[in-house]
């Protein structure tokens, strides 16, 4: 309620032509960080905890099949170079988005998979949010389950983390909200009955009950941007990757939950 009141008051002040006082943007102390999991009902937690009840595992299984399937003009499977994903992909998702030397900017896991497809399999890139790309990403990320997030630790990424932080802190859109106004200042409150949460992306790609499907972090970010009534970045836009990177760096040391379940 307080949040809604604040927005309403801010709106009134704007309409009246007053200067709006900046809401304080305090970052969440390390010890108070909580995964989105802790905000869920016991029923939803039970779905995530049981691999035979977690629908995200359907994508992981598909991903495992795709991992071994030969594709592209090179007629190579992921497994032909990387062999057993259980060993070669362990801990990888905890480091992503990571710096790509040739591009000179960070790439997320989906982009890395598509780069690998283009360069080594000579295959066409998979479209964002397609079942195959989500499946491969979920399969690769699941190999890091339980491992601490280290994304953003690379010093080359510093300017990109800073840019992501700027996007997170900047007020934008018709509602004139920054991500921080909900996820740093009001994470312990509710918005239309749903927990606001701390925006710590520990389990992507994750199965969202609302979507009835697996989805990427970028899909989630675009959802939030629709809610803020701001200009939505395209899938794969550098701004979205930088935001992903900053969010992952905020979740430093928290364990990967992929494939997580969220309401």
């Amino acid at each position: 309620m307080k949040l809604i009141r604040t927005i309403a008051v801010a709106g009134l002040l704007l309409a009246a032509g007053f200067a709006v006082p900046r809401l304080c943007a305090t970052e969440i102390p390390q010890a108070e960080r909580r995964s989105g999991y802790t905000f869920m009902s016991p029923d939803t937690k039970a779905i995530q905890d049981d691999d035979t009840a977690n629908p995200g595992m359907l994508w992981v299984l598909d991903g495992e099949a795709l991992w071994k399937r030969k594709t592209g003009t090179a007629d190579k499977a992921c497994a032909d170079c990387h062999e057993d994903a259980r060993a070669s992909m362990k801990g990888l998702a905890a480091r992503y988005p990571a710096y790509d030397k040739t591009l000179g900017r960070p790439v997320n896991l989906e982009q890395r998979i598509n780069l690998c497809r283009a360069q080594h399999q000579q295959a066409t890139p998979l479209p964002y949010e397609s079942r195959d790309l989500l499946a491969l990403t979920a399969f690769v990320a699941q190999q890091s389950r339980g491992m601490p997030i280290t994304a953003g630790a690379d010093p080359q990424l510093e300017p990109f983390v800073a840019k992501g932080r700027d996007t997170f802190m900047r007020r934008q859109g018709q509602l004139n909200l920054g991500c921080t106004n909900c996820h740093n200042d009001n994470w312990d409150k509710h918005l239309a009955g749903s927990a606001v949460t701390q925006a710590l992306p520990t389990g992507y790609p994750l199965y969202r009950l609302e979507w009835q499907s697996l989805g990427s972090l970028q899909r989630r970010l675009r959802n939030c941007m629709t809610g803020m009534r701001t200009q939505i970045y395209d899938y794969g836009a550098p701004e979205l990757v930088e935001l992903e990177l900053y969010l992952m760096s905020r979740a430093h040391d928290m364990p990967i939950e992929t494939p997580a379940v969220r309401p």
């Binding site: 049981d50 691999d51 035979t52 009840a53 595992m57 359907l58 299984l61 099949a65 079942r131 499946a135």
Partner: peptide, 8 residues
């Protein structure tokens, strides 16, 4: 690639 998860 429809698939089932069974727990028995």
């Amino acid at each position: 690639m429809a698939s089932a998860l069974i727990n028995v």
